[in-house]
Design a protein around this nucleic acid. Structure first.
Lengths: 191, 191
DNA sequence: CGCGACGTTGATTTGCCTCAACGATTGTGG
DNA sequence: CCACAATCGTTGAGGCAAATCAACGTCGCG
């Protein structure tokens, strides 16, 4: 398990006192699989860091179709960025896929920490920069690659997730229907 | 025209000395339309702020198909985030659509300024946060909306761009071929 | 003027979706 | 501990949105 302190240490070096301070501003929670920890229409009050387990964020269209924005397993951050920033109701759900231990960093504490420990402002800047690059790449992939190619890329990028995530959610992340994904997979295996 | 200082003032307050310092770290350039200021395969050395005119970033697939990632007119930032961060060759082109005045902020100066003026770290964090939210929304739109809906959203979001950008580039941003875009537009006008 | 990029339109194809039916697995209450 | 429902993945038939290919008119520009 990768702790939040180890995660932060990848980009900035905190003193023991700063580490203490940071942890004192967080809340550690345990959630069972299938728990929905954020609903669309609600205001996102926390940044979530995953200690263990697996979560996902997604939206729902026409009350039917889900679209997965992100998976987050150990060592990843997740949240509804839009709602977190604006403190307005978002349209993302966040759901637990596997029983999880999650560190919650309340937004007001995060803002406060930016002042108390400027290095954390750097840390989150870098975190978000990387996230932006990843989203830009995924956007371009959706415009230029076929479903098969996107799936192959997903496999090489997140090999561990393939066994852990229901197939229909991978299909949703890739951007195809579960039915088409099933056929596509069968076709790819035949080669 | 919105200056870089006005743009920054939207989120953080710089002293006159800090403003002076910042400007001393930038280079102002004038480019003619059709100039390619960054090629795929090159390392992106600057963040670009657009004083006037219009630019775009895009990639090319199979030596043929262009995909527009971003348009940037007065008051917008543009660059190849991936290449800028990693200082490795990127796969984005940046091209001038309309004659432009552009402020170049070299990467090493930007990193230096983060230390000299921590408020700038906050500014760029906020800038990138907003960019991330926009990219997440566009990604989800591409997964859930039809081409018509994406075009309507583009129109309401960037009304001024519609007259300024060649139609085939809007098609590319939306994620359809120029031919299909033309037919779709005609069909929408008929209503 | 003549070339090259752009936008339009039509005919055809295709990647992916929709709907529907069916086994396998899971889990839940009696 | 079983029965039943619910969810999941699979497969097939048919349909549609968008791509491809090709031809043509227009405009800006050297």
């Amino acid at each position: 398990m990768q702790s939040i302190l180890e995660n932060i240490a990848k980009h900035v070096a905190l003193t023991p006192e700063e580490q203490e301070l940071l942890l004192s501003k967080t809340i550690t929670q345990h959630y069972k699989a299938k728990t929905v920890i954020l609903n669309a229409g609600e205001i996102c009050k926390y940044s979530y860091f995953v200690n263990s387990g697996l979560l996902r964020s997604f939206s729902i269209n026409d009350n039917i179709t889900e679209h997965v924005l992100q998976f987050a397993c150990e060592g990843w951050w997740i949240g509804d960025m839009y709602s977190l920033l604006t403190q307005k109701p978002g349209n993302l759900f966040i759901e637990v896929i596997e029983d999880a231990e999650v560190v919650l960093l309340p937004k007001e504490n995060q803002d406060e920490l930016y002042h108390l420990i400027p290095k954390l402002e750097r840390f989150f800047r870098i975190l978000i920069e990387n996230s932006l690059v990843a989203h830009q790449e995924r956007l371009m992939d959706n415009l230029s690659l076929t479903a098969e190619e996107r799936f192959e890329k997903f496999c090489s990028k997140y090999p561990t997730l393939i066994q852990r995530v229901p197939q229909k959610q991978i299909a949703s992340y890739i951007g195809v229907t579960p039915e088409f994904f099933s056929k596509m997979k069968a076709k790819m295996l035949r080669k």
